[in-house]
Design a protein around this nucleic acid. Structure first.
Length: 425
RNA sequence: GGAGAGAUGGCUGAGUGGCCGAAAGCGAUCGCCUGCUAAGCGAUUGUACGCCCUAUAAGGUGUACCGCGGGUUCGAAUCCCGCUCUCUCCGCCA
């Protein structure tokens, strides 16, 4: 959510920046509602002022045993009028709030203008792509040949876009998660969190999933619970409605969680394999920082994500999302894309974003700055560190051997009971 | 699932219809004092929104806020109703 005062004073600037995202937001409606709200507010506050003053007089007259029936009956009318205005005010404020909630964040000045992912500038390229004598296979073939990924059974049990992992496949996914958590908590100094995997409406609103993207979420029937689409939701909401001590900033959290996404509107996309699932595992890093450090923290966060791929020796590149590709709540996002030889393409495996105060304002996460004594919103950031399912895909495709086996990357062997390869069946 | 208790400022905790934006304590900030990162003394210390003024500073002023939402009343932290959450006991249970 944007600062309403900022929006009021910088309408044209906001209009331009939102347009660069390829979004069309009705800011004229905002101006109208905002003006209406203030008109009503002024009238109702003047009447309340009168009521408060007269009520005080009534109290004093009563004490002196004087009659005040005329005042009382007049105030009855005033109160009725106040009630009317309050209803109107409430309606207007709801409209205004709903509108405000659907306005995306302003892109950071360093974000390039573009329309889609093809306009994303490449920031870094790392690693050497593996060479294969014969054409490398896509992970779904490797996984099925090794009997470690079972797409048919996943579909039978739950439906399309669900996968059953078996044997070394299941262990490999678990190894990837544990390896990543250990790296971040020991070397990158994050605090491990294991959050609830469901969250309520308020939490979903705080991080920006609601109200605009309800169709992307799984909701529990007849309950105010949603399955989390990412650990970002519960972990960022750890500090919702809190005032943090400036001294504890920056705060670093890392959490494993399964992620549940309805993937509405993605029919026909990435239907094969593990790339696009209704349920997948992810390790997520979340930071709370002061405003002046958040962009440095974003750089470090992104490097933390990249470090996982370096340790696994998987080639990747990092791109900076252009305005047209930027997520709703984000001011700036780096995507880390792993090389997938079986599909001859780079695929997103991590997304690292600075939301500035956009989520903090929605979720009311503040800190008191000691130098001024004033409350300010923190900046929130998060990034995948990494998506576990897609990491498994990258391992299978990059480490596949001509005989059909898959070598286990050195960094994962301690987590695989010393196993050095998954032998061909 | 059943019975009971509770929810007040950054924290602890008073307050059962007007004198309450709210005692007291803690914490924090500033100043003083003190021969050594102890103690003491004094002052200050809520947020949001609107309006005025103005340099988008400071200041002034109004309104709202004592878990959330309704109601009673001229007037509600205080009375009534509903909800949420926390705690205790009973039942059930991985």
């Amino acid at each position: 959510m944007l600062d309403i005062k900022f929006l009021r004073q910088n309408l044209d600037f906001v209009r331009t920046r939102i347009a660069e995202r390829g979004q069309d937001i009705d800011l004229d409606a905002f101006v109208r509602l905002d003006g209406k709200r203030r008109d009503i507010l002024q009238e109702v506050e003047a009447l309340r002022n009168e009521r408060n003053a007269v009520s005080k007089q009534v109290g004093e007259k009563k004490k002196r045993k004087e009659d005040s029936q005329d005042l009382i009956s007049r105030m009855g009318e005033v109160s009725a009028r106040i009630r009317e205005l309050e209803d109107a005010l409430k309606g207007t404020e709801e409209h205004l709030q709903n509108l405000l909630m659907t306005i995306p964040n302003i892109p950071h000045e360093s974000v390039v203008c573009g329309t889609n992912s093809e306009d994303n500038p490449v920031i870094r390229v790392w690693g050497e792509k593996p060479k294969f004598e014969s054409a490398p296979k896509p992970h779904w073939e490797i996984g099925e040949n090794l009997n470690i990924l079972d797409f048919a059974r996943g579909a039978k049990i739950a439906g399309a876009r669900f996968t059953l992992y078996r044997g070394a496949g299941a262990m490999l996914e678990r190894a990837i998660v544990n390896f990543m958590l250990d790296l971040h908590i020991t070397e990158h100094r994050y605090t491990e969190i294991l959050p609830p995997f469901m969250a309520n409406r308020e939490s979903m609103t705080g991080t920006g999933q609601l109200p605009k993207f309800a169709e992307d979420l799984f909701k529990i029937e007849n309950q105010d619970y949603y399955l989390i689409p990412t650990a970002e939701v519960p972990v960022t909401n750890i500090h919702r409605d809190e005032i943090l001590d400036e001294k504890i900033l920056p705060v670093y959290y890392v959490a494993y969680s399964p992620c549940f996404r309805a993937e509405a509107g993605s029919y026909g996309k990435d239907t094969r394999g593990l790339i696009r699932q209704h349920q997948f595992n992810k390790v997520e890093m979340v930071k709370f920082t002061t405003p002046e450090t958040s962009y440095d923290e974003l750089e470090m966060l992104t490097l933390n994500a990249e470090e996982v791929l370096k340790r696994l020796n998987i080639p990747y590149r990092t791109v900076s999302l252009c305005t047209g590709d930027l997520g709703f709540s984000s001011a700036k996002t780096y995507d880390v894309e792993a090389w997938l030889p079986g599909q001859e393409t780079y695929r997103e495996i991590s997304s690292c974003s600075n939301f500035e105060d956009f989520q903090a304002r929605r979720a009311s996460i503040r800190f008191r700055r000691t130098s001024t004594g004033k409350l300010e919103f923190v900046h929130t950031l998060n990034g995948s560190g990494l998506a576990a399912g897609r990491t498994l895909v990258a391992v299978l495709e990059n480490y596949q051997q001509a005989d059909g086996s898959v070598v286990i990357p050195d960094a994962l062997r301690p987590y695989m009971r010393g196993m050095d390869k998954i032998p061909a069946a």
